[in-house]
Amino acid sequence: MNASTGAGGGAAVRPKAITGVAADSSAPESGARTIWRRFARHRLAVAGLIVTALLILTAILAPYLTPHSPYAVTASFSAAPSADHWLGTDPVGRDVLSRLIAASRVSLLVGFSTVALYMTFGTLVGLISGYAGGWLDSAVMRITDMFMAFPFLMVILVVVSALGAGLSTLIWVLALFSWPAVARLVRSSVLSIKRLDYVRAGVALGLGTPRILFGHILPNALGPIIVNATFGVASAIVSEAGLSFLGMGVQPPTASWGNMLTDAQSLTVLTEQPWLWVPAGSMLLVTVLAINFVGDGLRDALDPKQ
């Protein structure tokens, strides 16, 4: 914490003890402002934020931006880019650009909802486990160990083939295997924060446990959680793409960057029809990089040691 900013200094010796020590008049910088100022120092992070914002906008406005219907089949299969189909058509004859735009919805939906799901659960588990301590904490930590020891990809393949592939299955499965890391992260922050005097003060003041957990501990543990969530979005998008590429994720005809890349499994496509995979691959790359840059920027901006 930066003690020297704000209304320090003026305290020194005053004639009478109970005269108030006036805080200085200049408006202090709020917490959010400081974080933004630090974040803005990172060029890449700001660029990442802009790109991410554009992507979110694209995903929201997707139905209005697509030049063709992403599902409409035309007579030209795997056609090279032209004036009508800027990025060509796929082997079924659908417009690649339209599918690319529609797929941004799927990717971001998977990214954000997976993260929202497992962050909420993981944070809750970590808070309770870390604060309660004792046998409950040990039990919860052994459960997270078990989850983390599972060969993640294999279990996903099994679950997907058992339950059937689909968007919601994908989200739930990814969330199922991601919460333990968050629970551990949150728990470790809680363990250090709960020893601090302001938490003991909360106990001494007789505040209820939910008030202490959500009003005093969680806000002070939020930094690492936010950073982790940002990276989590990028990694969920990559996982979705990977599973869709293997045919275990989003099923055609729904477009996803991952299943658009499936076409690149053929050598002819890879060498002679780059419009079938370069756009989807690039979007994936740009999205993940942009979100990771935002995460890097946030991590530095939220680091109290800076």
């Binding site: 914490m1 900013t5 704000g6 209304a7 320090g8 200094g9 305290a11 020590v21 202090p28 917490g31």
Partner: peptide, 22 residues
């Protein structure tokens, strides 16, 4: 405790040690 009303909407880090103890 001898603090001015303007202190109300400030955060602890904006105060000196003595003020914080108040």
């Amino acid at each position: 405790v001898g603090l001015p009303k303007t202190a109300l909407d400030r955060y602890p880090h904006e105060f000196s040690g003595g003020q914080r103890q108040r």
